[in-house]
Design a protein around this nucleic acid. Structure first.
Lengths: 203, 203, 203, 203
DNA sequence: TATGAATGAGTGTTCATTCAT
DNA sequence: AATGAATGAACACTCATTCAT
């Protein structure tokens, strides 16, 4: 680990700010959150934030990138050694919702706040999100190549369809007060998509 | 000026502002758009906007509500007389994406900008959106009651799943530069869900 | 007078802000003066300043330009009809110091504050100042053409020499607490330069 | 490290900071220069600057004082043994502009940046500047006592007049891109003032 | 001495909203 | 109803200065 990287990690300031910003943005929204709010939550001075992040937008981007990294890392780990594509897709769906459940504030920021920064939807290319979407797409393509999933549907469209469904369901669950068993949802959604995908070929 | 003419004139201003705000919010985002931007686009004075809308948030809410009204009205019309639930669901999917295609600025505002106003996701109950989601749910429940759709899945979850998928695919299409045939997407997505729904019961 | 110009002049806000800014900048210096200071002095809201001036720098530039306009206007008027170049130069020197005396705050801003805005010394071309310097130069050149002033010296250098002397003496007088008869200074300086200029040729 | 070596090292840092600050202030202006800019240019840590200077203002004052010391030292040296007052004044004028030419950054800081710190023009008494002005005044008074310069003019006014002229011409030369022969200017200005001063008495 | 991370007060500028006309 | 000049609260960001190491 480089010295500067070590400094950032070790001091904990960087991570403390990221965590505080995630919480603050989730609670008040990105635009309604002030840098001062984040500083207070992180228990650092306002100026300190600018030692670690270029500006307020950069803070949001950083939350996003580090989160997607985590998502992808967890997925890789969870699917390691699983060869059956149907099982891979089922686990991806389950894990996605589990992660949302485990990091509800994060999920909220990613889903809602991310889309408002004009930077994101218009200027920022969103490589990390694409990486995750590609992950989904790879599973679908593998399934199609194996003949397990039908090949009529464009994997590009399917990845969006699945991601959108998971994103929306996850968000709704995060926002709703009554927190039912998200696990059951996973099964229903996985069944829906797996059947949808496998049976199409027999048409 | 007669009273009815005046009324029309009023309503003309109202609609002009709604249209201008939709366009402006889609272009610059809700928070980055100023009331002055909207006024300029609508060719009215800033103060005039406050004769028709309580405040800037109210403008966004109004866009949303009138749009969802349109969505539901169009859906009602399109599904009128169609009794086959599978066909009803297929048409709903197709029409949803068609409407997005026809009103891309609106879709952008609904999808992105709507979620930023903390008012919306936290305070505003979003009755109109619920109304639309209920519309989807009704079709599913009818299908389940008829035995055409399997009954394992919670209609409540399904409506979110389908809505999320349509929302995400529609948004992506709106934002992408290369505008391919959205119609083909509709068929693929409809097939996916219909098969997913119908085959589940046979499991 | 155009309507918008009339508005600006009539409301008096523009001039009130210019006057308040001149006073404030003279007292505290440009950089140490806050826009809020100026607003308070002008008895307008902070935001109002931005309706009349692009930004704080623009305020300084505007003070400068309108002042140099006044300087030149007064000079034109004072020298109108005077044909003798020696008398013209003498009157210019006298009037310059009189104007400084009459508008000491203005003089202070012009002399000191003007030079700090990087805009001015580096980016701003300072056309109005050049116009005034050209005014001085014209007198010198006319004198040289008539053979009244000697022609050994570059009019370009002379104009700077005279301007610098007047500027420095004027400033010092403005800043010093004991305010003696500036008029007597005028005579001494005029004598010095006129003799310097006229006798050089006989060398 | 020996004590004397340490002292030298200290002094080395001191001078390095002075030099870096002069350069930085000349380039960006005093207010727009940050202490961090100066530290970077001097290749020391920010905190180090505060070991040698009380604060940012003190840095500017120190530049000024050490420069005026140099000015006076050089003048003393250059005029040593010259008894003819006319020659003394001529040499002073020439040397002033030569020094400006040799230390253009310094000249710029002295002329422009110095005047912005409210400390200077209002609170700071400027002893060193007075010392230099007194230097000029002494020459004039000597000339008047000898009967070489006419006695009509107040030496106090004359010193300001000459200083102002030199300051302005020097500054203009420093700022202008096209750098002509400043030496020629010296001769013209010296001629102008010497004739102005000597001939006044014969009037 | 020397460092440079941390601080937090301070400021230019924006913009939603109001209200006299 | 319509206007748009005026308001002033709010906020992102900077930077001189400090201090623990």
């Amino acid at each position: 680990m480089s010295e500067s990287a070590q400094k950032k990690e070790e001091s904990g300031k960087y991570n403390r700010i990221i965590a505080a910003a995630t919480k603050t943005f989730a609670e008040k929204g990105f635009f309604k959150s002030t840098v001062s709010d984040v500083a207070r939550a992180a228990e650092v001075a306002e100026g300190t934030i600018y030692l670690y992040f270029k500006n307020k937008d950069d803070l949001l981007i950083s939350i996003f990138e580090s989160s997607m990294d985590m998502f992808i890392r967890e997925m890789d780990q969870a699917l390691e050694g699983i060869t059956d594509v149907k099982e891979r897709l089922r686990r991806l769906i389950t894990l996605h919702l589990s992660l949302v459940e485990a990091h509800r504030e994060l999920a909220q920021v990613l889903h809602i706040e991310l889309r408002q920064s004009s930077m994101f939807m218009r200027e920022y290319t969103g490589d990390k999100l694409k990486q995750y979407l590609k992950f989904i797409q790879d599973i679908i393509e593998a399934g199609q190549a194996e003949g397990v999933f039908n090949s009529n549907a464009d994997p590009y469209v399917l990845r969006r369809t699945i991601f959108g469904a998971l994103d929306e369901v996850g968000l709704k669950w995060v926002l709703s007060k009554r927190k039912g068993p998200l696990e059951q949802f996973s099964k229903q959604i996985a069944d829906l998509f797996l059947n949808g995908l496998t049976q199409l070929k027999e048409k």
